[in-house]
């Protein structure tokens, strides 16, 4: 079950501080990288909820983000609906899509669950690629960002947009914590630990999975909407399975089932990508080697490794303190 500890709070504060500092001081290129990290962080939080806390390893979260992006583009650019309403509508559509996928896939496990979600993702990709309304391979352009001029914010400014994404990431993180600490989240944890027993206790397991997948879909949809607003253009590539695979890599790289880890993973992945791609076009190879090292080390990602060492250190301290205390107690007794 999800719990915060001192280390998690410390890393969260550090990440928030670093992001805020970057948002306030960076130039255009730095802000673009930051926004990319923030959007990816929202997507991987969505994935961590289902994969890390529900054992539902999904290969369709990229597609869900794509559904959100296309829904927003169609509602705002083509149907002429006001961007805030279109944004809410896109998140709702993605939530509904996620719920249906979760419900259909709820009876499968492990590799079968992964394959079923992959199939859903590829179906969405193919449909968007082929259907003329989505602009085919050319994608859709002219996507507007939210108009927050009423409260004095211009989201067309990169800095303001990065701060806006940071605020949304904070809200999404808070929502994820609330979900995992709710009755639904507790039951999800029970299902991951022992699905058969939860069913025997009277829980409608498929419904819990579908509900959580729907909520996760909403968050993925939000990431897609922000991605669309960020680059103001979308193409079917956003729905491709490689996006989902990349999100999974980020979650594993950061620390599955920790919520904080995927944030670390998102930052590490995007920074690595940009730094390495400046040096070599084969940057994927380096990321692959790092991922293999993380998996082989059996540490739960970068954050999981740090957390395990931190936990071991605390245990050693407690053991030392107990050992030091015992002779004194004996002396008092004597």
């Amino acid at each position: 079950m999800f719990r915060h500890n001192t280390l998690r709070y410390a890393v969260l504060i550090f990440l928030a501080g670093a992001a805020l500092f970057q948002a306030l001081t960076a130039g255009y290129f730095g802000l673009e990288i930051l926004t990319e990290i923030l959007v990816l962080a929202i997507l991987v939080l969505a994935l961590d909820i289902v994969a890390g806390f529900g054992g539902m390893v999904s290969l369709c979260h990229g597609a869900l983000a794509g559904v959100g992006a296309y829904a927003y583009a169609l509602l705002s650019a083509k149907a002429g609906i006001a961007p805030p309403v279109a944004m809410a509508g896109a998140v709702a559509v993605t939530g509904a899509a996620g719920w249906i996928i979760g419900a259909v896939c709820s009876r499968s496990h492990g590799i079968y669950f992964i394959m079923a979600t992959l199939a859903f993702g590829q179906m969405a990709y193919s449909y968007v690629f082929e259907a003329p309304v989505f602009g085919g391979d050319d994608g859709l352009g002219g996507i507007e960002r939210l108009d927050l001029s009423l409260i004095g914010l211009d989201l067309n400014d990169s800095r303001t947009f990065a701060l806006f994404c940071l605020a949304l990431l904070g809200a999404v993180y808070g929502a994820a914590v609330l979900i995992l600490r709710s009755g639904l989240g507790r039951s999800l944890s029970g299902v991951m630990h022992n699905e058969q027993r939860m069913r025997a206790l009277g829980l409608t397991v498929w419904r819990v999975k579908a509900d959580v997948f729907g909520l996760s879909g909403m968050i993925a949809g939000l990431a897609g909407v922000l991605a669309a607003q960020h680059v103001m253009f979308i193409s079917p590539g956003l729905l491709g399975w490689t996006v989902s695979g990349e999100a999974l890599v980020v979650v594993i790289l950061g620390g599955l089932g920790t919520l904080v880890g995927p944030l670390v993973g998102a930052a590490a992945f995007v920074v690595l990508k940009h730094e390495l791609s400046a040096v070599t076009t084969y940057w994927h190879l380096v990321v692959g080697v790092i991922l293999i090292a993380v998996v082989i080390s059996r540490a739960n990602g970068i954050f999981g490794w740090v957390e395990a060492r931190w936990g071991a250190r605390i245990e050693r301290r407690v053991a030392d303190a107990t050992r030091k205390q015992q002779p004194g107690e004996v002396a008092r007794d004597a």
């Binding site: 609330l178 979900i179 709710s182 009755g183 639904l184 039951s187 409608t204 419904r207």
Partner: peptide, 16 residues
Amino acid sequence: LAAAVHTGHATQLWSD
């Protein structure tokens, strides 16, 4: 977890 299922709190989103 078992008691939550019995009391109907196991699927609530707004409370622990």
